[in-house]
Amino acid sequence: MKKTLIAAAVAAMAASPLASANDYVIDTEGAHAFIQFKINHLGYSWLLGRFNEFEGTFSYDESAPENARVNVVIDTASIDSNHQERDQHLRSDDFLDVANYPQSTFVSTGFTPDGNGGGVLAGDFTLRGVTHNIEFQIDQVGAGEDPWGMTRRGFEGSYTFKLADYGIDYDLGPEAEEIEIYLSIEGIQQ
């Protein structure tokens, strides 16, 4: 799935009349991008995990940052909380229901720059077949040429939401009603 979607994203950018030197493919093959989560466990500790399989593209032009756009597709079955039995439960219909909803997506709908390379990113986030328009702060980590002559750009941000907003009503106690998603993405300019 990973290579197919990356190839499709690159082909779509190349064929697009909007394709420019400001288009990036998120570097998941080089493991320079992460989507992680954090949720309280019964009020006693934090449960941390990640999604191992995802991909996407973004466009960012320093001279017109308000035109930035992002598309990310997450393979929900790739959830990894470092515990096989728990991961199987998280894939079940109690949580992600990966049999019916194998992907989660984020498609940006707008960006309000803050003047420092970051800003507020808005977009449609879909999980378990439920879509909500969300907004969250992202910060630019850096941009420039790597040792191999490629241009890279990286951002990070996090978003907290209620599980119930996406149809997840499994009772984990009042401390675990919200989950924080953290993303760190590094893109390679196309």
Score class of each variant (00 low, 15 high):
S16Q: 03
K2L: 15
I188P: 12
R86N: 10
A19G: 12
S45E: 10
P17D: 14
G123L: 02
F161M: 00
P102M: 02
N100M: 06
K162Y: 04
D27L: 01
E62M: 10
P113G: 03
L172A: 08
H132N: 05
M1H: 13
R50K: 15
I185W: 02
G49H: 11
P113T: 07
A15C: 01
V141N: 15
S20D: 02
Q137L: 10
V130E: 01
I138Y: 02
G115E: 04
Q103E: 15
N67S: 14
F95S: 04
I39M: 06
L127I: 05
V10R: 10
F125W: 00
G167K: 03
T112I: 13
Y60R: 05
G119L: 09
S92L: 08
Y159V: 03
N100K: 13
E55M: 03
G119C: 10
I79T: 10
D94L: 03
H83C: 11
I188Y: 13
F51V: 08
N52C: 03
I138L: 06
P113M: 09
E135N: 14
E53Y: 10
H83I: 13
Y101I: 01
A14H: 12
S104H: 03
L96A: 07
F54L: 09
N82W: 10
G123R: 03
A12P: 00
T76C: 11
L5R: 08
Y60W: 06
A164E: 15
Q88H: 13
